Amino acid sequence: MTRLGIQLIIFGKRSGDDLPGVLADVKAAGYDGAEVGNPTTSVAAHDYKQLFDDAGLACAGYHTGVGALTDLDHVRETAAHMNTVGTKHLMAGGKWPDAAGYEDAAQTLNAAGEILESEGISLCYHNHNWEFFDLPEGRGTGMEILLHNTDPAYVHFCFDLYWVACGGEDLVSFLQAYGHRSNYLHYKDGTFDLETKQPLTFTELGNGQVKLIEATRVVKTLSPAWITTEQDRVAEGGDPATSAKISADYARSVLGI
């Protein structure tokens, strides 16, 4: 069964200062769980698990950078922390200027992903818009390199629907072609300039340009473990808890998640 999560980026600094209060707001908004940064080196795993247990929530996943995965001892430490907390998805993102950078990143992902998979954890590459930009010397795009140079047994994808669309892809066609590589998705909405492939605003689900209803028809055939909302920031003067609830209500009532 697919569960509904939220990336805590929407709460900004408060997630670090008042995590129990943030999780209480997440629970009140109607989510099943929350995705966080990587707390492995800052909070003991049992203590972190207790925070989620007290809130009545699951930890949907951790988020890190691909650069951190080059330290395989740290990868193993992260896996142990995640298994104690009870979360099974590690998101990782990055950005490189050329094909060689993406090829190296693919090998980093393969090595870390093999370790994580052996510990029952899915490593999921999280995209932005830049993976869909043409690379120098006619070497295609970063996304093409990552898709074709990572081992599907060890590397999954956390496709972010907003960034896929902002990057100029037809969202439905993209999910039909590559959705099988994803067991965890980010649902983000907002506006963007298709000519420049650049973001303009981030909004609650249902208030932007992303074709979420059409995309969800495909996503439901994939049966991902989590669909996690992600709103990078709220409008000036806005309240994160209110925006979080708007997105949860849309996901539940309109998208049927």
Rank of each mutant, 00 (worst) to 15 (best):
E169F: 02
L161C: 10
E169A: 13
D160K: 06
L175D: 01
A165L: 01
L161M: 13
A165T: 07
D193V: 00
L185I: 12
Y178T: 07
V155E: 10
L147I: 13
L200D: 10
A153T: 13
L185W: 07
G190N: 10
K197V: 02
T191D: 09
K188H: 12
E195N: 12
Q198W: 11
G190D: 07
H156W: 03
L161W: 05
T201D: 11
E144N: 11
T196Q: 11
F202W: 15
L194K: 14
S182K: 05
D160F: 07
N149A: 11
A153V: 12
P152I: 09
Y187E: 02
L185S: 08
Y162E: 10
C166H: 00
Y154D: 08
F157A: 03
H180R: 15
G167T: 01
F157C: 08
R181C: 07
Y184G: 04
G167V: 00
E204M: 13
I145R: 02
E144C: 05
A165G: 01
H186N: 09
L171I: 10
L200V: 15
N183M: 11
L200R: 15
C158E: 13
D189G: 04
T150P: 09
Q198H: 14
K197S: 12
G168Q: 00
P152L: 11
Y187T: 07
V155D: 03
V172D: 03
Q198K: 13
Y187M: 13
W163P: 00
L175S: 01
F159D: 04
D189L: 07
V172G: 02
C166E: 00
F159A: 07
H148G: 09
L146F: 08
